[in-house]
């Protein structure tokens, strides 16, 4: 079982009366000749690393290699604990986890690229927060990861997930699209709703540039991982309410790619424009001096 587009993926789901996670799992078994338990074990390992990287900095904040971030997850967590959160527990926890993962990443800790290191906070942020809120089992979270993986696979196959090629929309945009699809499946949405949620995210993050201060995966990357979480949950909520989408996932993915290629060179991970070129950023970074 293989698919090359969102449309083919939905066809597979319809033909076999199954979810996106089932198709993705089957594809993995067939194409890579791996038994189901090996695949499951590998995915469990992914979840284990995601969980540890999402939680550790809440207790033990750590300064990044470049010195631009560190301690944000703990602050957010305390803020939420004090009952001061204004975005509700799912988003509040989600952004805390996403920023925590980025803290671990920026301090040479162990993370899972999802799909890249710079966007690695979004998928664990969304899925782990939903798990806690709704008491979802680990096995179901593994399904959510498979579904997220299906979206990421299509993005890698048919577009790009490299900030240097397509800007931040290709990294955190795709990460959030993956997370949104996973969230919809966990909340019992249909396969086509999963793709619609991914499509909304790409739409809402369309054109986002990649402009890391000092060229480092720290700032604004960490904030944007948090915004990816909010985008993913917003999109999932919209489709789960029954709203249908005008533009399908395949079209949005193609659009994201073509917009990405037209983003100027200075705004594609070169640290020559955007946030990276502000006076404050230059003062903080000092790389050119």
């Amino acid at each position: 079982m293989d698919f090359k587009s969102g449309e083919e993926l939905l066809l597979c789901c319809r033909e076999h009366h199954c979810r996106i996670s089932d198709v993705m799992r089957k594809r993995e078994e067939e194409l890579f000749e791996q038994p189901p338990d090996i695949i499951n074990d590998r995915m469990k390992k992914v979840l284990e690393i995601m969980r540890s990287s999402a939680r550790k900095p809440i207790k033990d904040p750590v300064r990044s290699m470049g010195g631009l971030i560190g301690g944000e997850a703990k602050k957010l967590s305390l803020h939420h604990e004090k009952g001061r959160s204004i975005c509700g527990s799912v988003i509040s926890r989600g952004i805390t986890y996403a920023m925590a993962v980025m803290e671990v990443n920026a301090s040479m800790g162990l993370i899972v690229a999802a799909p890249t290191a710079g966007s690695s906070g979004v998928v664990p942020g969304v899925l782990l927060s939903l798990q806690e809120e709704y008491g979802i089992s680990d096995d179901r979270i593994l399904d959510g990861l498979m579904t997220a993986g299906a979206i990421g696979y299509l993005a890698m196959r048919n577009a790009t997930v490299a900030g240097a090629v397509g800007g931040c929309q290709a990294e955190i945009g795709v990460a959030a699209a993956m997370a949104a699809a996973g969230a919809v499946e966990l909340m019992d949405g249909t396969p086509s709703q999963c793709l619609d949620a991914a499509s909304i995210v790409l739409m809402n993050m369309l054109g986002l540039v990649c402009d890391p201060v000092g060229g480092l995966v720290e700032y604004p990357c960490q904030n944007r991982n948090a915004s990816g979480v909010a985008n993913a949950i917003t999109a999932a909520e919209i489709v789960l309410s029954g709203v249908s989408e005008l533009i399908c996932f395949d079209e949005m993915l193609e659009t994201m790619y073509s917009v990405g290629k037209r983003i100027p060179y200075e705004l594609r991970e070169t640290a020559l424009g955007g946030c990276a070129a502000t006076k404050s950023a230059c003062a903080a970074c000092g790389a050119c001096k």
Binding site: M108, G109, L145, M156
Partner: peptide, 13 residues
């Protein structure tokens, strides 16, 4: 593979 998307497991950043 799905593990090319959710992966590599890696030391950052």
């Amino acid at each position: 593979s799905v593990f090319d998307v959710l992966g590599p497991n890696m030391i950052g950043p």
